[in-house]
């Protein structure tokens, strides 16, 4: 059937559904991941990211719909998929009571890596993860950032074509996150397709393309630039500093298309060219002290927040 070279998309899903009892965790997802790209999977807690990745990796059976990974069917050919992919689960899943080296040897062994090749892979992983000095340490004693690099290494010990990373940087400091993303770039540069889930907007910016999901549904798909451009079509984004902030939020919620709190400021979307002045007068008339109103370029976070609010509104209208 399909072999290493002939598949077109690294991942392709159509109408993918997963229900747990009456609860729908993944709701008719459609997307494709191109070969060699870094594909980000963005969504709030409980959006269905892990559930989707688990179906792609053969850990869960879909309730409905279909999908392929490396051109192989995720339902019928999941065993063949397993040797072609690497998976790093959200929860750390290496053996904490084995040493760094032993974990590498174990995963190499069960993936059928030959002894000679394993020695090379082990050296590469220790170097890549910067773990050479800790090779004999128990894995449970490593700091979180090291563990995650080791987990990435073990997920790649058999040189997979496609990597699924489920929140690989959860709970680590910014420096470790930066280091980890450097590894992802290196790996992707070598031609490996990477599908990665995240909560972090700065990480999402690093992706070639993004799927945003919410409540199990796809709410946006495209490159970071495309998503921001779509947002810009809806109007001009303003950053507003005002006092009291919450009163300003209430007032603007009546007056403008979209408004949300961003740290100590508000972000609002206005249609007209005169939107800036309109916001100022509206707020001042309501007795709010306006410190600053400034047009800004939308960030991914703006895009994301607006899409989620839209989805919520649609859900309310629907019932």
């Amino acid at each position: 059937m399909s072999n290493v070279l002939t598949y077109e998309h690294a991942v392709e899903v159509r109408e993918l559904v997963k229900r747990f009892g009456a609860f729908t965790a993944v709701d008719r997802l459609d997307f494709t991941v191109k070969r060699g790209e870094i594909f980000g999977f963005l969504g709030p807690n409980g959006a269905g990211k892990s559930t989707t990745i688990r179906m792609l990796c053969g850990l869960l059976l879909p309730t409905a719909g279909r999908g392929t990974v490396a051109g192989l069917d995720i339902i019928r050919e999941s065993e063949r998929i397993k040797t072609r992919i690497g998976y790093m689960s959200q929860k750390f899943s290496l053996y904490e009571d084995l040493t760094v080296e032993e974990n590498i040897a174990f995963y190499g062994g069960i993936y059928g890596v030959s002894d000679a090749r394993l020695a090379e892979r082990k050296a590469w992983i220790l170097e890549m993860a910067n773990l050479a000095d800790r090779r004999h340490s128990l894995t449970g004693e490593l700091a979180v950032g090291w563990k995650q690099r080791l987990a990435l290494g073990c997920a790649m010990v058999h040189e997979p074509e496609i990597l699924f990373l489920d929140e690989p940087t959860g709970g680590v400091d910014p420096i470790s996150r930066r280091n980890f993303w450097d590894l992802i770039f290196t790996v992707a540069g070598a031609g490996v397709t990477v599908m990665v889930t995240t909560h972090y907007m700065d990480e999402a910016e690093h992706c070639d393309r993004l799927a945003m999901i919410y409540g199990g549904k796809l709410i946006a798909l495209g490159s970071p630039a495309e998503l921001k451009a779509q947002y810009a079509d809806a109007g001009q984004l303003l950053e507003i500093e005002a006092d009291p902030l919450m009163r300003a939020l209430d007032v603007l919620a009546e007056a403008v298309h979209d408004v949300a709190v961003f740290g100590t400021t508000l972000h609002a979307v206005v249609h007209a060219a005169r939107g800036e002045a309109m916001v100022r007068t509206t707020l001042e008339r309501a007795g709010v002290a306006v410190r600053r109103v400034e047009p800004i370029a939308p960030s991914l976070e703006d895009v994301f927040v607006r899409l989620i609010e839209q989805a919520d509104r649609q859900r309310e209208e629907a019932g």
Partner: peptide, 13 residues
């Protein structure tokens, strides 16, 4: 309980 089952199940074992 420890979550190591996931790496086993995605492997060819």
């Amino acid at each position: 309980e420890r979550g190591t089952i996931e790496s086993l199940v995605v492997s060819p074992v």
